[in-house]
Design a protein around this nucleic acid. Sequence first.
DNA 1: CGAAAATACGAGCAGTTACTCGTATTAGTC
DNA 2: GACTAATACGAGTAACTGCTCGTATTTTCG
Lengths: 208, 208
Amino acid sequence: MSDARPVRRQERGLRRINEILDAALGLFAEVGFEATSTNAIATRAGISPGSLYQFFANKEAIAEALSVRLVEALREAHASAFGMASVADMPLGDLLDRMLDPLIAFRVANPGAKALFNNPAMPAGLAAATRPLQEAVVGRVASVLAARSPSLPAADRQRSALVGVQIVAAVMPSIVAAEGAERAALITELKKAMYGYFAPLDSPAEHR
Amino acid sequence: MSDARPVRRQERGLRRINEILDAALGLFAEVGFEATSTNAIATRAGISPGSLYQFFANKEAIAEALSVRLVEALREAHASAFGMASVADMPLGDLLDRMLDPLIAFRVANPGAKALFNNPAMPAGLAAATRPLQEAVVGRVASVLAARSPSLPAADRQRSALVGVQIVAAVMPSIVAAEGAERAALITELKKAMYGYFAPLDSPAEHR
DNA sequence: CGAAAATACGAGCAGTTACTCGTATTAGTC
DNA sequence: GACTAATACGAGTAACTGCTCGTATTTTCG
């Protein structure tokens, strides 16, 4: 109802935006989305509360921007992992390695991402802000599934992708929290679970 | 540091405690733990904020008591489902049905339980309050695993139980949210995932 | 240079939160 | 019936929340 006028950002402003996003990501990692106050974000970013609101309309908008930044980063991580290789022809085990390893590396490197990813107890505002992220991830998995199992009905495919993503999301916090050998063991368990779930759905060429 | 003196509850008090717990469970289901205010719990329970604190030291203590109540209810649900039948000899598919069906029924009937169960984004206070619940559930699964696969090292068994519980916890909200055919389909998916994960660990008598 | 836009500040606002406290009522016990 | 402990009330408190606003500085650009 008021000004929809877009602001012409200068370089300084773009830098600030990134600093704010970094601060928010760190705080989300440490105390979660709800418990992170906008004043705390501003303080960690080294600016005043007023300045923060020069760049973001509200707290939810920060989560949204963060979500966009994460989709982008994840897209790149996966793109480099897949390269030109066709997703349809790979053995399932290799495919899981190629999809999960970058994702795990990403989550280990960005513990704050946890707050943004699909998890069952997401506060209302956050859920709205990260819906595109969730959909991007589930859609990505569904399209891989479509390539490998063209005979699977679309609804089943979508549901399987969702469940697969939820399983990964469920185990990921333990993986990120663990270290060394225990982390490796948990990663193995996750892959076993994913393999056990997807192998029966997979293209006949794959399993025995 | 102050009074550790236990209060001698009268019947009226015990009734109030249950009313408070019911109110809290309902609100947790509707808006989540963090967003539920203690004043709102008191109001729904039909008492004043002051009265609430006659029975619970703080908000976290309410979650704790609720957690205890849920462990109890769940224990009963599972006990009646198992009866005398030995957990060690059952086919894996049957075992999964017997463990998961009552759990799903319980969660559908108690949507508020969602806030109390293991989920990755649990606020700090709630996590502390419900740790016993998590441990009870994981321990239960681990002991079933121990009965069926005695050769599995204890550490592996514990880890597998944890991952199994996390998978269930991850898919459960979707199941509770869905209805009719979609819910049934999601339950099937969950069981497929659990079967795929546990079958390779299971006692040799079981698979093929 | 000079004006407009972008960036910056931080005290402060209205609202909410978990929780307290002084006081009143009710129930159990001798 | 009297004494004590349990239950009940609800206005109040201090802290904190997301966010605003008046004002000041810096940058861009003609």
